[in-house]
């Protein structure tokens, strides 16, 4: 944090993400579907781990309820 190329952009992002996670949860969309992490370009292994972990999380959660809603709409 604070190491943003644009000074404080990530501070702003972090606030929004904190809000959005809770809003999603209240709307019935698992908040784990949104993740925000800071990984610098020098931290390749952290990035890979993070992505693999996120993929696993999403797989375990199954398809997004939004997708199902969209499918119903189209039908």
């Amino acid at each position: 944090m604070g190491d943003c190329h644009y000074l404080y952009g990530n501070v702003a992002t972090e606030k929004r993400v904190r809000f959005l996670k809770k809003l999603l949860a209240f709307s019935g969309i698992e908040e784990e579907r949104l993740r925000c992490k800071w990984v610098s370009s020098a931290e390749a292994s952290e990035f890979v781990e993070e992505m693999q972990d996120f993929t696993e999380t999403l797989r375990a959660l199954g398809p997004s309820p939004l997708k199902q809603a969209g499918a119903q709409r189209a039908a």
Partner: peptide, 10 residues
């Protein structure tokens, strides 16, 4: 302006 986009996002 450095084109960071903070304003656009807000």
């Amino acid at each position: 302006c450095k084109g960071c986009g903070c304003c656009a996002a807000t």
